[in-house]
């Protein structure tokens, strides 16, 4: 009566699932190879001699024996053939971005916390106004911000070329980011109020609650905000290009500075341009590789409505 039929053949839907996985694997493999290709090209080019670039345009990697680090060495040695001021650009970018992330974190977290956990008059109206401001396109505020920057710089002697002044204008506009406010508010909302209330009834001051209880819980959201702030500050082109034009080239961030080498011409400098790009990519790549999963998961949840 009992049958011991072992079905070693796959049933229909399992076959289908296997088919799905193979097709998607092959397709994704092809797509990803194409996707990665520009990076390989960039890396390979940065290792080619200029001569090689001119004579072997089709090969991705340098022909045998012609691998060179000359483009890279240029940065370190400060001599020889290099794109001027690269080290300074890198430093500029690093400083600006670091400060951006720092200020953004502090300002936005504090404000968001206040909106969720404190009661004060007009809280909701202020928040509503802030949300509404997200709909206003950046184009509108660009001009007046620029004129503010220009006028003030003009008015006060020597301010226009003051490094700190320019840096300030690079960093501060992006700090009060309402989107971050929204992100963090979502997270803070998800913390059960009971924890806060029981801490309060135990006698903890508001600041202590913030510092010792809520902040540790918020680590992953904070990291997410930092990541986005980092990437957007490092890669920003529109506003820095506006402010930094006409200023000394030592003021430029690396993103702005590279625009000069982005065209399809100037093949004499391609090798260096590629090497510079690799350099410019390093910080971002490091951050990306370390936090890749968190970044991706965090981005995914911004789309999910609770």
């Amino acid at each position: 009566m009992k049958s011991n039929t072992k079905h070693t053949k796959l049933s229909k839907s399992e076959k289908q699932r296997l088919k799905e996985k193979t097709i998607s694997f092959i397709l994704l493999l092809i797509i990803c190879i194409i996707w990665v290709f520009p990076f390989l090209y960039m890396f390979g080019m940065s290792l080619k001699t200029d001569v090689d670039i001119g004579t072997n345009p089709t090969s991705i990697f340098p022909s045998a024996g012609n691998w060179t680090l000359e483009h890279y060495l240029g940065f370190i040695s400060m001599k020889g053939d290099r794109i001027d001021d690269l080290p300074i650009w890198m430093i500029n970018s690093i400083v600006v971005t670091f400060l951006s992330v720092l200020f953004t974190l502090i300002v936005d977290t504090l404000a968001s916390y206040a909106f969720v956990f404190f009661k004060f008059k007009g809280k909701n109206t202020i928040f509503a106004i802030l949300l509404l401001s997200m709909t206003i396109p950046t184009a509108i505020s660009m001009t007046p911000m620029f004129t503010m920057y220009a006028s003030v710089g003009q008015a006060i002697e020597g301010l226009a070329n003051n490094r700190a002044y320019v840096m300030m204008w690079l960093i501060l506009p992006g700090v009060a980011n309402v989107f971050n406010l929204y992100l963090m508010k979502n997270f803070f909302d998800s913390i059960p109020k009971d924890i806060v209330e029981s801490a309060r009834s135990d006698g903890a001051s508001d600041f202590k609650i913030f510092y010792k209880i809520v902040l540790p819980l918020a680590k992953s959201t904070l990291m997410l905000v930092s990541l986005f702030a980092f990437v957007s500050s490092w890669n920003d082109l529109l506003w820095p290009q506006l402010i930094l034009s006409g200023k000394d080239s030592t003021f430029q961030t690396i993103t702005v500075a590279l625009t000069g080498y982005a065209s399809g011409d100037s093949w004499e400098y391609k090798g260096i341009a590629m090497a510079t790009s690799v350099f410019a990519l390093i910080p971002i790549l490091i951050v990306f590789i370390i936090t890749q999963n968190k970044m991706i998961d965090g981005l995914a949840t911004t789309g999910v409505k609770r």
Partner: peptide, 19 residues
């Protein structure tokens, strides 16, 4: 779910492989 082994008959018809 896929049936590993055995059979389900409805109205004298084997339906294991039917969608």
């Amino acid at each position: 779910e896929d049936i590993s082994s055995g059979g389900v008959f409805v109205d004298e018809e084997l339906i294991n492989y039917k969608p």
